[in-house]
Each structure stands twice: as structure tokens, then as C-alpha cells.
Amino acid sequence: MSTTYLAAIREAQAVALREDPNVFIYGQDIGKFGGAFKATKGLIDEFPNRVMDAPISEDAMVGLAIGAAIEGMRPIVEMQFADFSSIGFNQIINQAATHYWRTGVPCPITLRLPSGGTAGSGPFHSQSMEALYAHYPGLVVVTPATVEDAYSMLLESIQLDDPVIFCEHKLLYYHLKADRLPTVNLPVGKARIARSGRHATVVTYSAMLHESLKAAAMLAEDGFHVEVVDLRSVKPIDTDTILGSVARTGRLLAVGEAFPWGGVTAEVLSRVVSEGFDLLDCPPIRLNAKDTPIPYHPNLWKAHRPTADSIYAALSELVRK
């Protein structure tokens, strides 16, 4: 029996609800309907008082979670789409992120953000918000790329005493499968070498891991062995693992699905250049989405984001520099 990325997220919430009476879930359409993506399907039947449909009020949803967390609860808030977390932005960055620092009282909330692009979703149902949240002190930002990570990192996020932005990628919901859910896994904050190699390093995360792995397989046919690092968490970012990989390969490509200005890939390059400049054999490069809103039509969307083909093209240049 195999488990999907989406089922792993549902299962992690079921386990958290079962194991800790302080856990509850708040979000739009998550009760009887089971959520827009069915990530909470059936949970209300087992936990009728702890799975609650919310009004369309992202600001108040996050504020409510913060208040409950102050009182010892461990709320999970499902944003229907990551894009709508912008309505709750003030509560997230000014209230939740500052709370522990200002008052000494932790604010353990988990905000689930169905993130990233899928064909036909357009400008307002496709965004990757991780860089915005990572910018602010006081938040943990995670971007699981595998079924195992979706499960174990969600459980760990709920247990952490800090606000966690859990960026789950919608494109991975249904097609990504694992034979079983893990009982042990790397902790939040640790990156993973998803594929070993010696000619170049790709640092990536979330759905772009899978595009990068495909590109690495294509490069292998050309005789180049590319190492792929899955960041798993973007805040904190595991600089040690990145530098270790670049030390082995001397070449770096950072790939992200988000917009190009600033962001995670820029942070990766900045760290490698400032902390590991001597490890580089040639200038590092970045690959991101285009600097426009995310297009609706699949013909445009496919060209807007990095793909295995564009990553392969960038890597082909990089390994020959």
C-alpha cells in the first residue's frame, strides 16, 4: 500500500490530534468538506471539537491561533492557498513572529500553506511565499519535497514551540508516493543530499527537487554527475551541507520556483560566495521563475517556471565552464 504526499499530511495531523489534546485545526472548508484538497478529510469525524471551519478571515484565523497558542494550545491553521496568507501577513510577521522575543511566551502555531504552481491555477493560486516569511526573525519556514518529509516535518512543526510556515507543494499532493511513512527522519533544519555527484551541485527545495533530479539524470547520460541538495527547511537554512557539497563539486546552481528578486536562491548564492568563495571553480548561477505574475494558461506557465529541461540547460553550461 502506498501513501501520497497529501495523505501523509492528513495522517500527520491525525496523529498529532490523537497524541496531543492541545492540537486543533482551523481553516476554511476543512470540516465536513475535508478541505479544498482533502488534507483534513474525515478528521472532523474523529475530532468533532478540534477541526473547525473558519470564516473567510485569514487575519483573524492567524490571530485566533496566536491567542490559543499563548494559552497552551498547538493550533494548525490551513490556508486554503498559500497566496491567501497575504491577508494574514500582519498577524504572522508582526504578532506571531515577534511574540516570543517580546514577551518570552512561545507561540507554537503551524500554518499550512498549499504552495506553488499547478497548470491552470494562475496568478493567485500558485505562489511560493517562503522567502517572504523567511525574511522575518521568529519564524521557521519548511518546504518538504518528499512524502516522508511532509509527514515527519509536519509532526515536528506541530511540536516546535515556534510559529512554523509549512509550505506544502500542491503539485506533489497526488502523484508523489511512498511505500510507508517514516518512524525516524532528519530533523527540521537539516538538508539532505538527494543525489550524489562530483561535477556540480544543485541546491533546491520543494517541487523543484523533482525537476532537478530529472535534470541530473539527463546530465548523467552526458557523463556528468550532479549532486542534488534538498534544503527541506529554508529557515533555518543548512549552510554546512550546502558548503560541504560545493566543496566536493566546485560548481553551484540554485533552483527555486519563486520569483527571481531576492529569495531563497539568492540567499544560497550569497552564503556560498561569502563563506565558501574559494570552493568555487566558476561563478555560481541561479534559476527561478520569470519576473512576472504567474500565468494561467499551461503554455505560458510551463515557460514561466524552471523545468527539468531548463535546469538541464543551465547545468550543461555550468559543468563546461
Binding site: 486543533f24 485566533l64 496566536i66 491567542g67 490559543a68 499563548i70 494550545m73 508582526n94
Partner: peptide
Amino acid sequence: PQEGLPAMISHLGALVSVVTGMLLARRLQ
């Protein structure tokens, strides 16, 4: 905050939902 006195932020209106959440927690508890 743990003695019933949550600490406001400058963004007015933002505390109303926090107090609401504290009350929800009380009810769940």
C-alpha cells in the same frame, strides 16, 4: 500574556482576534 494581559502590537485591531483565540483555548480546555 500568561496572566491574562496579552501584549498589543502597533497594528490596531490585531489584538481582537488574539483575545478571541485565548477564549477559544479556554473553551477547549
